[in-house]
């Protein structure tokens, strides 16, 4: 059995956006452990809480990743009441939004006006669609919040392609309605709907970079959402 070690300030759990959050924690001197799985695995429901309230994941490689973090924390479940969790879970828009547009549906007036083959989708429809695919994630987050001090953080808002902003807003609203502690990065950038500038994007164009991480983590510290853990 792995030897019990001192716990970090927080566990960052979630998708590939955990990397920027980790960089942000490093920049602010917060000790963070990361347990990240690609958004497609979250989308497919491969990460679950079992009846014993332990995190479980499908696939040997992913199980090894989970085991490594369990060991790093000294063994046992990664979910502990004394270890706050910052969750980048519930959006995974890269797997949710493109299929919605397979039949040319859009939510933006400008795109609808500009392209004759577009169909318009109402906000109620988008909300129902998003909730159908993300309801399980919200239930998972609610269960997590009963086990650990939990803060959910939305991904960086850099989207310019059609429908992303609408899904981003609807999933954010759905998380807010659950009453979970939630950080909307748009608030850290003044609350506007404008997408993030390229200076906050990584080279792959789909993730926040270290500068983004530092700013969003700084915002969450300032708001008291995360901080140094008192042993």
């Amino acid at each position: 059995m792995a030897k019990r070690k001192s716990l970090p300030d927080l566990l960052i759990l979630g998708d590939s956006h955990t990397a920027a959050l980790k960089a942000g924690c490093d920049a602010h001197g917060l000790k963070a452990e990361v347990l990240g799985f690609s958004g497609n695995l979250w989308h497919a429901g491969h990460i679950v809480l079992n009846r014993s309230q332990e995190l479980r994941v499908r696939g040997a490689a992913m199980q090894a990743r989970l085991k490594a973090v369990e060991d790093s924390l000294g063994g046992g479940s990664v979910l502990r009441p004394e270890l706050p969790v910052l969750a980048s879970v519930g959006f995974h828009l890269g797997r949710l939004v493109p299929p919605f547009g397979f039949r040319n549906h859009v939510t933006e007036t400008a795109v609808f006006d500009a392209e004759e083959d577009r169909l318009f989708a109402s906000s109620a429809l988008v909300y129902d669609y998003a909730l159908h695919f993300r309801g399980g994630h919200l239930r998972l987050l609610r269960r997590l919040s009963r086990l650990v001090p939990l803060t959910v953080v939305a991904p960086p808002h850099f989207y310019t392609a059609p429908n992303y902003a609408a899904f981003y807003a609807h999933v954010s609203d759905a998380i807010r309605q659950t009453g979970l502690r939630f950080c909307d990065p748009r608030e850290a950038w003044g609350g506007g709907a404008a997408p993030l500038g390229p200076e906050y994007l990584s080279a792959d164009g789909v993730h926040g970079n270290e500068a983004y991480g530092a700013r969003i983590v700084g915002h969450m510290i300032e708001k008291g959402l995360i901080g140094r853990r008192a042993d």
Binding site: S16, T18, N40, D204, V206, H207
Partner: peptide
């Protein structure tokens, strides 16, 4: 994009 996500995670590790 999945690949980019996985790479981003690995870089984080």
């Amino acid at each position: 994009e999945d690949l980019a996500c996985e790479e981003s995670l690995l870089e984080g590790f």
